[in-house]
Design a protein around this nucleic acid. Structure first.
Length: 483
DNA sequence: CCTGCCGGGTC
DNA sequence: GACCCGGCAGG
């Protein structure tokens, strides 16, 4: 009953969505069962891969339900569960048990609730996004056609066929393949379908399971063409697995948010809202090629299709004919123009590190001449003084020094002998000092680095406190042993 | 913890 | 302005 409801609600009817639904369900429940049913009009077509038979028929739904007899057994199962039963009846039980069944059980281990398609939805999305995965169903069809249940199960050959045209067989089932492709194509064009797929980790153990299954199936694939799919596993379940993360990041960064958002909506989308509603004003839809190592991004679907067709599929450039296969290799990408803009703008400013110093030593602006002048007096080059943070403060101290002790400072020059700019102080005109003083003070935030020179306190000790410079006595910056 | 010294207070 | 000191921060 419940399943029935679901099916109906999914508007399986004439719309591809129906197939979509089934597909999802199949994927979610059966995981790698790879069965896709496409229903067109009243006719029903069933594609099976290996042991599993995936049926999809709206018109006959009711009757089928009855026929199947109950969901009781798979009460926890959604359509997929029922499907399994069908399979069993079909006499493929053995295969089922050996292969997908286990998975199925895991997926459906929990009672109904989960069946509402949440998982299915996400899976579906994933499939649509991933060329390899998408291809899987198609290949399944083929396999199913041949009724090579056992082998098929063992050798999923997920994407080996679809991806490479040459593998296609002009068999009478071609139309079915095309149909499947069409279905997937239509699915792939829906942003909601695409993005939710990226629901990477979010999901659940089920998702994991699914991936595991995939990995298995892929690895066992006889076709080396799509070996990259296996590698894709390493790449979460992101929408654009074929692409290297780093690359896609830059471009899709703005998309990530949406992805996460959609993830939460996947369920909703599943059964109701096939129309993307999260599109933002600033969002621009682009089409990104998912072919491995290809990051072609075009603004039009036709463009990307052409690209795929000609570049990756090796189709005739002139021919506009499309069997929909290209759709497996590109995905819709929402580009947040604002984000992009921001990102670019953010690149222009110099690194933060460069911004720090200037403020700290503003003198260059207002006192460049001064500092230069000062340095001229005591040094060959002013660079050192500028570079030395102590320079300005030193001047400042000098001034205060005068305030505190006056000329005494001169003497200490010889003292420790470690002064870096001893000569500067004495000769620095008061005027300049006054000008310089403000700067360092303005940057009060920066505390003058502690000097290495011993101070009066250290030199004379507490016993001879009277010998300290007044500054030291007053707990001010030592004027005698300036750093 | 020691030390340097800033910031602020008092006289 | 001279003097003092609480308290912060680097080492």
């Amino acid at each position: 009953m419940e399943s029935k409801y679901i099916l109906k609600k999914s508007s399986v009817g004439t719309r591809v969505g129906g197939a979509d639904f089934n597909y999802r369900a199949g994927r979610s429940v059966l995981r790698d069962t790879r069965v896709l049913m496409v229903e067109k009009g009243s006719s029903m077509q069933a594609y099976t891969h290996g042991p599993i038979l995936y049926k999809f028929a709206v018109d006959d739904l009711a009757s089928e339900v009855k026929k199947d007899g109950g969901w009781s057994k798979g009460s926890g199962l959604c359509p997929g569960g029922r499907i399994i039963q069908d399979v069993e009846k079909t006499g493929l039980r053995d295969q089922k048990d050996a292969g997908s069944t286990g998975i199925l059980k895991r997926a459906s281990s929990t009672p109904n609730p989960s069946l509402n398609g949440q998982l299915p939805g996400s899976y579906m999305h994933l499939d649509t996004r991933n060329p390899g995965k998408q291809a899987e169903p198609a290949s399944n069809f083929k396999a199913a056609q041949g009724q090579q249940a056992p082998q098929a199960e063992k050798q999923p050959l997920p994407s080996s066929h679809i991806p490479v045209p040459r593998n296609r067989k002009p068999s009478g089932h071609a139309d079915k393949e095309v149909m499947a492709a069409t279905v997937l194509t239509s699915l792939s064009t829906s942003p909601l379908v695409l993005y939710p797929s990226s629901a990477p980790t979010v999901s659940d153990p089920a998702n994991k399971t699914w991936k595991e299954v995939l990995s298995t199936s892929y690895s066992s694939s006889t076709s080396g063409n799509w070996s990259w799919d296996a590698s894709d596993q390493s790449v979460p379940s992101t929408p654009s697995p074929p692409l290297s993360n780093d690359n896609s990041k830059s471009f899709l960064s703005s998309q990530s948010d949406d992805v996460s958002e959609d993830t939460t909506e996947s369920t909703h989308f599943m059964f109701e809202d096939p129309i993307p509603r999260k599109r933002k004003n600033s969002m621009k839809v682009m089409f990104k090629c998912l072919w491995k190592n290809c990051e072609k991004v075009l603004s039009t679907s036709s463009g990307i299709q052409r690209h795929i067709r000609t570049v990756h599929l090796g189709r005739n450039t002139d021919s506009d004919y499309s069997d929909g296969e290209e759709d497996f290799y590109y995905t819709e990408v929402e580009v947040n123009m604002d984000s992009l803009t921001e990102g670019l703008s953010s690149l222009t400013p110099t690194s933060p590190t460069t911004t720090g110093p200037p403020p700290i030593f503003p003198p260059p602006l207002s006192d460049p001449s001064h500092s230069e002048h000062i340095s001229m007096n005591g040094f060959q080059s002013h660079a050192p003084s500028l570079l030395s943070q102590s320079a300005p403060s030193t001047l400042c101290h000098i001034r205060t020094d005068h305030a505190y002790q006056g000329p005494v400072t001169h003497v200490r020059t010889v003292g420790v002998g470690e002064k870096r700019q001893p000569s500067v102080t004495p000769h620095t005109p008061v005027k300049n000092q006054a000008l310089n003083t403000p700067a360092p003070k303005s940057t009060s935030g920066t505390r003058k680095p502690r000097g290495e020179a011993k101070k009066c306190r250290k030199v004379y000790g507490m016993e001879k406190r009277d010998m300290w410079c007044t500054a030291c006595r007053w707990k001010k910056a030592c004027q005698r042993f300036i750093d």
